[in-house]
Simulated assay, not measured.
Amino acid sequence: MDFTFRRATVDDAQAMAAMHFRSWQESYGHLLPREFFEKQEAGLPQRADRYREFIAAGHPRMLAFDPDGELVGLGAAGEGRDDDRPGEVELFMLYTLERIHGRGVGQALVDALIGDGPAYLWVLDDNPRAQAFYRRNGFVPDGKRQLCDPSWYSLPEHRMVRPGVGL
Score class of each variant (00 low, 15 high):
Tyr28Gly: 05
Leu71Met: 08
Gly58Pro: 08
Ala48Phe: 11
Phe133Ala: 05
Phe36Arg: 03
Arg129Phe: 07
Arg61Leu: 13
Thr9Met: 09
Val105Pro: 07
Lys39Asp: 15
Gly106Arg: 01
Asp116Gln: 15
Tyr134Thr: 03
His20Gly: 02
Ser154Arg: 12
Glu26Asp: 13
Glu88Tyr: 12
Val161Ile: 10
Val110Ile: 15
Arg61His: 15
Ala64Asp: 02
Asp125Asn: 06
Gly104Ile: 10
Asn127Lys: 05
Phe21Arg: 02
Ala130Cys: 07
Leu32Thr: 01
Val105Tyr: 07
Arg145Cys: 05
Glu157Gly: 07
His30Ile: 10
Lys39Gln: 15
His101Ser: 09
Cys148Glu: 14
Glu35Pro: 04
Arg103Asn: 13
Phe36Lys: 09
Leu97Asn: 01
Arg145His: 08
Arg81Ala: 10
Gly164Gln: 00
Gly73Asp: 02
Phe37Gln: 04
Ser154Val: 06
Asp82Glu: 14
Glu70Tyr: 05
Gly143His: 06
Arg52Cys: 05
Phe92Thr: 03
Tyr51Phe: 15
Glu38Leu: 09
Pro163Phe: 11
Phe21Glu: 08
Asp149Val: 00
Lys39Arg: 15
Phe21Asp: 10
Arg6Pro: 07
Arg81Cys: 05
Met160Glu: 01
Pro45Asn: 09
Met93Glu: 12
Phe3Tyr: 09
Asp66Gln: 05
Gly104Pro: 09
Gly69Ile: 00
Gly58Arg: 05
Ala112Leu: 12
Ala17Tyr: 00
Arg135Glu: 07
Gly73Asn: 01
His20Lys: 05
Arg7Trp: 14
Ala17Glu: 00
Ser154Pro: 04
Leu63Gly: 01
Leu124Val: 06
Lys144Val: 14
Phe139Met: 02
Arg7Asn: 14
